[in-house]
């Protein structure tokens, strides 16, 4: 149980907030707004799952926000040009995977620090997009929104996709050799090399996967609105990293669970509606998010310190 202390802690806090809401503001639990809230957060969850893999593998990617924008705009333009929605979605995934592969090649191939590489690709992508689009919105054809289904059906579909990604990746991470290799490489890349694993390939693969998932998330976001605004996704990287860290994934690699990430993301997502329902001014949202991140890292630090003494 001690292994999952962080995940359990976050989940407990989340449940406490949800319970408070149930008592004080049952209106929070109305189906339609709740479903909308979850559907809005679903793309973030998909990116967060990918980010968790990257961070468990002891890397980081701060270019996902820019990737998200590029994939959104590209898929939007293709859809507007008359491509079938399914192809546009596939294109978003492919473009995301391509950028993930570029990050992965620079980090794994050249051995560059991931934070700087992805800082550079983040700036490059963002500004390249601005240059190409000049801030123009893309108006989407009607059949794109909710994939031509009803809003309820569309939202449900999105939630199912996000759920499938979460469960699938969580399973792979836990039960496939490939998943365990990510933990191994993140825990100690040199030991992994000595054990005959291929740390560079693992690093490349997690970046590739994160890119593809970011593309998928962009598509999931795209079908929720009638147009694409090019700034969509800015700031996504920090929100996603925050969710992953709050969810108990160690920034030093090798540790973490996807269900913790889910709890972390929901905790961040629930703050704003909770504030509204509890009649606290909504301007506090970001400050509270920051405080939660700090709290998470401080408790982890103190726990580690106490644990270290016990073991030594």
């Amino acid at each position: 149980m001690r292994r999952h202390a962080r995940e359990l802690g976050v989940t407990a806090v989340l449940l406490a907030i949800l319970a408070t809401l149930a008592l004080v503001a049952p209106a929070f639990y109305q189906t339609a707004p709740l479903r909308s809230l979850l559907a809005r957060e679903a793309p973030t969850l998909v990116v967060a799952c990918g980010m968790a893999l990257v961070i468990i593998g002891r890397q980081i990617d701060i270019s996902v926000g820019s990737q998200f924008s590029v994939c959104s705009v590209a898929a939007g333009l293709l859809a507007a040009a008359g491509w079938p929605t399914a192809l546009a979605v596939a294109a978003a995934v492919a473009i995301g995977a391509l950028w993930g592969a570029i990050n992965g090649a620079l980090v794994a191939g050249l051995g560059l620090p991931s934070i700087v590489v992805t800082l550079a690709t983040m700036v490059t992508l963002r500004q390249g997009l601005n240059l190409a689009r000049q801030g123009e919105f893309v108006n989407l054809p009607d059949q794109v929104q909710w994939l031509g289904l009803s809003q309820t059906a569309g939202q449900t579909l999105i939630l199912l996709v996000a759920g499938a990604v979460l469960v699938g990746l969580a399973w792979a991470l836990r039960s496939l050799a490939a998943g365990r290799h990510i933990y191994a490489v993140g825990s100690d890349a040199e030991a992994a090399r000595l054990a005959g694993l291929r740390p560079r390939r693992v690093t490349f693969a997690v970046f590739l996967l994160l890119g593809a998932l970011t593309g998928l998330a962009a598509a999931m976001n795209l079908i929720q609105s009638p147009q694409v605004q090019p700034l969509v996704g800015s700031g996504l990287e920090l929100k996603v990293i925050a969710a992953v860290v709050i969810g108990g994934v160690a920034i030093s690699g090798g540790r973490g669970q996807l269900w913790g990430v889910l709890a972390g993301l929901l905790l961040l997502a629930v703050i704003s509606p909770a504030l509204t329902h509890l009649r606290i001014e909504a301007y506090w949202e970001k400050a509270i998010q920051g405080a939660i991140i700090l709290l998470a890292v401080v408790t982890e630090g103190l726990r580690r310190r106490a644990g270290g003494k016990g073991a030594g």
Partner: peptide, 25 residues
């Protein structure tokens, strides 16, 4: 040269099992 974040069983398995990625654990 072990993996500090993983269990003993897992450390042994990573050394001993063939490195096929798609294998079920």
């Amino acid at each position: 040269a072990l993996f500090p974040d993983l269990t003993v069983a897992e450390n042994l398995a990573l050394r001993l099992e063939p490195p096929q990625l798609a294998r079920r654990v």
